[in-house]
Simulated assay, not measured.
Amino acid sequence: MTLHVTRSSKVSLLPREVGSLAATVPAATPGTLFVLGAGGGMTVAPDADFPVLFGRNEPDVHVCVGAGDPHVSRQHGTITREHGTWLLRNMGKLPIRFPGGRLVLGSDVAELTAGYHPLFIVAPEQEHLLEVRVAAHRPATPPAVVSADTRPRTVWSLTDVERLVIVCLAQRYLRGDPMPQPLAWEQVADELRELDPAGRWSWRKAAHIVAGVRKRLSGTVAGLLEHEVPPPVGNALNHNLIMELVITTTIGRGDLHLLGD
C-alpha cells in the first residue's frame, strides 16, 4: 500500500527544509497540527478530519520516522483529531517517549496539547525523533531500504515470581501515569499478600527479589547499583530498572492482568 496525499488548504506537505519545529513556529490557525520527520512532514488543519500515520516504511505512512531501523514498526502510530483534541496512538511495540520521560506504550493513547512536542521512538540502538507542534496562536534523505518484517528487540528474562513483583512495583508506569514512581514497598507487599495469600509476602521479600534482578542486569545496564547513582538515591534504582524493562518491552501493559486488571 502506498499512501497518497492530496494537497488542499487543510492538508499539505511540510518539506524537510523547514528545519526543526522547535525553532520554526509557522503561522497557522490555532489547533493546526505540524508533524515532521527526517524526510519531511505534514500540516493538518484542525477541521480537516485527516489522520496522520507515521512509521518506518515510507510508502505506507504520511511521515517517515526510523527509516532503516527494523525495530520500529512500519506503521508505528497515528495522530488524530477527536472532540477538539489531537491524540497520539502508539500502534507499535516500542514505547514513545514524551519530554520529561513519560512513556506511551504500545496501544496507549496520549493527548497532544498546544505547543512543541519532541517525541522519541525508543529503539535499542538509538531513539528516533518525531517533531510535533500544535499551533496555539498563528504560529534529504533518500528512503532507506525497508525490511519485510519488524524485528523484535531483545528482552530480559524474568521468572514468574520476579515478573509479578516487578509489575506490582511498576504498575503506575504501565498504567501511563504522567509522572510515574515505583509503588512503596509496603503497598507492594499488601497487594502481593492479597493476590497470593500463601506466598508469605513482606516488603523485605519483595525488595530482595527486585534487588536480585537489578544485580543480574547491572553488568549490562547502568544505574542499577547504589554506587552508580549520586545521593540521595531514593527511588532512582528501581526507577532505572523499571524504565529498562519497559523500554525493552520486557514488561508491558498486558502484564497488568497479573494484578487482576
Rank of each mutant, 00 (worst) to 15 (best):
A206T: 13
P232L: 03
Q181R: 14
G219H: 07
D255L: 01
V210Q: 03
W201N: 13
K215S: 11
G260Q: 12
L237H: 00
S202K: 02
A198F: 08
P230I: 03
D255F: 03
R214Q: 11
H257R: 15
P180G: 15
M243I: 07
D196T: 15
V188I: 13
I251R: 09
M179T: 14
G234L: 01
L195V: 12
L256C: 14
M243A: 04
H257E: 13
G234N: 03
T250S: 10
D255Y: 00
H257N: 12
R200F: 12
W201Y: 15
E244I: 00
W203E: 14
K205C: 05
R253W: 04
P230K: 06
E226L: 07
R200W: 04
A207W: 02
L259T: 07
N238I: 02
E194F: 03
D190E: 12
R216Q: 11
L225S: 07
W203R: 11
V188M: 08
T248R: 08
L245M: 06
S218L: 05
G212F: 10
A222C: 09
R204P: 01
A206Y: 13
H227I: 07
A206V: 12
E191S: 01
E244K: 07
Q181P: 01
I251F: 06
L241M: 05
G254H: 11
G234M: 00
S218E: 03
G223N: 06
V188L: 09
R214L: 07
M243W: 01
A189E: 02
A206Q: 13
I209A: 03
P230C: 03
V221G: 06
W201M: 14
D255E: 11
K205L: 08
G212M: 01
G252W: 14
W185H: 10
H257S: 14
D255C: 09
L195E: 09
W201F: 14
E186N: 12
I242A: 02
L258N: 02
L192D: 01
D190M: 11
A184H: 11
S218Y: 03
L224M: 08
E191Q: 12
L245T: 08
P231H: 05
W201V: 08
W185P: 12
L224P: 00
H208Q: 12
R253F: 01
G234D: 04
P197V: 08
H227A: 07
V213T: 06
W201I: 07
R193A: 11
Q181W: 13
A184C: 10
M243F: 03
R204D: 15
G254Q: 12
G254C: 10
E186L: 13
R204E: 15
M179S: 15
T248I: 03
A222N: 08
A206H: 14
P180Y: 14
V188A: 04
L237F: 05
V221S: 08
A206G: 11
A207G: 09
A236G: 00
V221K: 06
L237V: 02
A211W: 03
V246S: 04
W201K: 13
A206M: 14
L245K: 05
E228S: 07
P197I: 10
N238C: 01
V210H: 05
L259A: 09
R200Q: 15
R200K: 15
L259F: 11
E244H: 08
E244D: 05
L195K: 10
A198P: 09
G260V: 15
G219C: 09
R216L: 08
T220W: 06
G252V: 09
I251S: 08
V246W: 04
E228L: 05
G199N: 11
